[in-house]
Design a protein around this nucleic acid. Structure first.
Lengths: 150, 150
DNA sequence: CTGCCACTTCAAGTCAACTTGAGGTCAAGC
DNA sequence: GCTTGACCTCAAGTTGACTTGAAGTGGCAG
């Protein structure tokens, strides 16, 4: 079988070796064994790292991501939770769209002071109510996360 | 005029007083003066904080956000830069959509091991090539950011 | 058999973004 | 005039996610 050295994994994923060691230390990924001293990774770690990277991009912490993978390493969460996460992403996407639109607006409308431009304020107003709601639900979520003892 | 105490700003935005002081310290926001010891904020800081929060959600660092506001405190960047930021957001939104779809897929398709489900792998494959490109462009962006000395 | 070099460990350092704590101030209400 | 409570400063601490550095190891090419 063809296993991967840490260097190869690093190169293929763009994640540094030290980060990969760190990920293994916190049990986010697993190496399948050693060749001499060297960790050997199974090729499917690449897929997992894609997923991890995607999760980080989405603003999840490594701890949250670790939770999404069960302790067996498979993606494995109650359906309801997965849909909840997806909904959370949905809201975040909406927020990003607001920000994107705001940036485009600023680039194009270029009134002297945007904080006073009515259509800009309107854009922001719509966003800010949602933001506060998000923040509250995030807090709730954070509080409700009970990390099971190892 | 009706100015706002830090406590009121905190309550209306959901951002803690200590965070607000920190934001002021790094010159991300400004108070208009003092009432005794107490900072007084103009009401428009609320809008600015909305924008800041939105930016953070989008994954920008406070330093990056500070750059988007000029040193005069107004949103004020060359058009091209704004559009570039917007494009970056666009890509990020696309990534989030992939993640969202991946989560929904896992919730619904529930094959025993997702890492082997072909439609799932396909989803990931599409994402991972983009991720690596993103990472590279981020690196470039980070390197090209030269913080002007105060 | 000898080097080389990509790996290894472990402790400590770094950075962003805050939070916490100790000790102080001051305007407003009683 | 005194208390109260929301603010203040400043230094130090915290958390997450790594990075860096020093000192060591071991498979493999020559």
């Amino acid at each position: 079988m063809k296993f991967l050295d840490i260097g190869e994994v690093a190169e293929r994923t763009g994640i540094s070796p030290s980060a990969l060691r760190y990920y293994e230390e916190i049990k986010l990924i697993r190496s399948v064994g050693r060749h001499g001293l060297r960790r050997q990774f199974d090729a499917d770690v690449l897929l997992k790292l894609s997923l991890i990277d995607l999760g980080r991009l989405a603003g999840f912490s490594l701890a949250e991501i670790a939770q999404m993978f069960g302790q067996d390493g498979q993606l494995h969460l109650p359906r309801a939770d997965l849909h909840a996460k997806a909904d959370e992403l949905e809201r975040q996407i909406a927020n990003l769209r607001v920000l994107r639109d705001a940036l485009r607006h600023v680039a194009d409308c270029s009134a002297p002071t945007h904080l006073e431009c009515p259509s800009f304020r309107k854009l922001m107003k719509a966003a800010s109510s949602r933001q506060i709601a998000d923040r509250r639900s995030r807090k709730r979520a954070a509080n409700s996360v009970r990390i099971p003892h190892d």
